[in-house]
Design a protein around this nucleic acid. Structure first.
Lengths: 187, 187
DNA sequence: CCGAAGGTTTACTGATCGGTACATCTTGTG
DNA sequence: CACAAGATGTACCGATCAGTAAACCTTCGG
């Protein structure tokens, strides 16, 4: 079983699911869009849900890697990295195919908290939170956990709002609030 | 055509869609859960999408009425009303069947910006924004539009986070940040 | 060159999707 | 009560859903 085919499937399925939604994307559409036969898919993944979970794992890896790296590229100090997170988000919002957070959408379609897909989405958010808390600690902020959670509320709000597009630039609104929050909690 | 049956249908469909999702809820399930026959449904609504739009309209009315009223009950001044919005949200999060924002979920399942369901969701957010901006103006805050948008980012973030449940109490985190924001913009 | 192991494709399954035709029942008016 | 108008329920439509059986290639040791 060549792993390259499997990776190719997950990669392409990610694009289709992100663009089209989970329930709205049938396995037959996946066949058409990926050029991979259905039987091959079911050799690699027992069910559609298993495929979605693999897709979310890949998305988690890609997104966190991208965001963390971009934050490091845009600023040197941990304090500034927390702020430029919102510049990185703005870049993402401006990308052509931007359609909001894949994990929010996944948990919207699989709402039961105990559902593996919902839990996978929650895991992603937990990993992000841990990283931002670490940065807040490195920045020597008072009450780093609380600041981190507040910054992440701004992040989630900005993503949702950017997708619903009822505000011109949520990333910069969020950044302004973030600057205030970080400033207030620095020594 | 008795309007009461129509209202009953929309009301019950709202509950099922909210609990179960839009694509995941078939018309047959709706028949089972509402006790209303499919033909009746299609006499009132040409398509499933039309029904969903009616559901979202009702949800918009109910939710905004509830939130606005609750904010007025919990505080007297416009400035304080902006703050206690997050106490009202917390009450919502603690309700038994809480499953996040119906409009975020709708726009997650109908992603195309030009889709009527997506636009309906965007309309709801716009109406909320207008109201919060008015409050910020009444509170005599500097740059009321910006503060209002920032508060709403916190609101959206709190709702998403409460649904994904990776943080104990997003409403109070958001409230703390809101107090800071409002304080910073008051004269 | 052979043959077999294993991945791939075609063609199909029962179930369910959104939506509809038509017969039946309910209701307001005389 | 009679009767027409309109709402209702049953039974069904083709299309599509997730998932599968079995024939079909490809590849590699000998």
């Amino acid at each position: 079983m060549r792993p390259s085919k499997r990776n190719e499937l997950v990669q392409k399925a990610l694009e289709v699911f992100y663009r089209n939604g989970f329930h709205a994307t049938g396995m037959d559409m996946l066949v058409g869009q990926t050029g991979i036969s259905k039987t091959s898919m079911y050799k690699h993944f027992r069910t559609k849900e298993d495929l979605i979970i693999a897709v979310l794992r890949l998305r988690d890896e890609h997104f966190r890697n991208w965001l963390y790296r971009r934050m490091e590229e845009l600023a040197d100090t941990p304090e500034q990295q927390l702020i430029v997170m919102f510049d990185a988000l703005e870049e993402w919002f401006d990308e052509a195919g931007f359609k909001g957070c894949m994990f929010v959408k996944a948990s919207s379609e699989y709402q039961d908290t105990s559902h593996p897909i919902h839990q996978q989405s929650a895991d992603h958010k937990r990993l992000l939170e841990r990283h931002v808390i670490e940065l807040a600690k490195k920045a020597n902020l008072v009450n780093p956990e609380a600041v981190a959670r507040q910054l992440l509320l701004l992040k989630e709000g900005a993503i949702v709002t950017a997708h619903l597009a009822h505000t011109k630039n949520p990333a910069q609104d969020a950044k302004a609030a973030a600057i205030l929050l970080v400033d207030r909690h620095s020594h």
